[in-house]
């Protein structure tokens, strides 16, 4: 194991984040606060409790999950895309570092950033609503598993993208709609039966449901299924990354 290399990339990525720490943290915190003001206080006060939880508190896990997905993808995709764009990727390719180590460093840094952000959002949310977390350890497990999975996805997008447009395309066209339709702001049990069934094809449903269970001990789908699906997404992401490295796809000519 080339630990010095993992440390070098990880520290480099964290330092890059640290330089723009204000934007990195303030913008998600502000947008989350806005969601709470609008949905929690303004509209939420007129919405009845969902699954026994006030609407303002109900949307907390979903909002955090939404930000976690977006931040994991954008952090990781940018982290690997930028060296390709700037040409500095030559250094990583010529270094005595294995594929596994490269992924650990880049994905680890991206996941760390988004988990930190999620925790800051959680703290922000606690200012607006009464939060109690039924299963704190499981909450962290879901947080970390999801952050790693979507950072891997971001890593894949960063390697696939050959322009900044493509970097934005996938999160904008696929991830954000899936997150909004994945029960972030509602319980899928509120939907008509047909849409409930369709929703089950949306991977985000399982992530949000599992995460919400960790908070309120109530979920749209069984917690076991949520966990299994989360692990399955992680496995799929790992398989794709392994394939990319084995074939040298878009990295080595």
């Amino acid at each position: 194991m080339n630990f010095y290399a993992i440390k070098a990339i990880y520290t480099f990525e964290m330092a890059r984040w640290w330089r723009t720490i204000l934007q990195s943290i303030i913008s998600p915190v502000v947008s989350t606060s806005l969601y709470f003001v609008v949905f929690g206080a303004a509209i939420g006060s007129r919405i009845e409790a969902v699954e026994g939880v006030s609407y303002g508190a109900f949307i907390v896990p979903g909002l955090i999950m939404l930000a976690l997905l977006q931040q994991s993808i954008s952090n990781a995709s940018f982290g690997i895309y930028f060296p390709k764009f700037a040409g500095t990727i030559y250094e990583i390719l010529s270094a005595p570092i294995s594929h596994v180590e490269t992924v650990i460093a880049f994905v680890g840094a991206a996941a760390t950033k988004s988990v930190i952000l999620a925790l800051i959002m959680l703290a922000t949310a606690a200012l607006f609503v009464d939060l109690n977390i039924a299963h704190p350890v499981w909450m962290l497990v879901f947080l970390i598993l999801t952050a790693v999975t979507f950072s891997l996805l971001g890593f894949i997008i960063g390697i696939w993208a050959d322009g900044f447009e493509k970097l934005q395309l996938f999160p904008l066209l696929i991830v954000t709609p899936l997150a909004f339709l994945g029960g972030t702001f509602y319980s899928i049990t509120m939907l008509p039966p047909l849409w409930q069934t369709i929703s089950l094809f949306n991977p985000v449903v399982y992530l949000v449901s599992g995460f919400r269970w960790a908070f309120y001990d109530a979920s749209d789908v069984h917690i076991g299924i949520s966990l299994a699906m989360t692990l399955a997404f992680l496995a799929v992401a790992l398989i794709i990354v392994a394939w990319i490295f084995r074939t040298g796809y878009r990295l080595r000519t």
Partner: peptide, 27 residues
């Protein structure tokens, strides 16, 4: 390896970028 093209992490300092490479190569 000194590549032909002038590349670099634009917002890094000279010290940081040179130290980064040392780490990357396992030292």
């Amino acid at each position: 390896l000194v590549p032909q093209e002038l590349t670099g992490d634009r917002f890094e300092t000279v010290w940081a970028t040179v130290s980064f490479t040392r780490g990357l190569f396992g030292k």
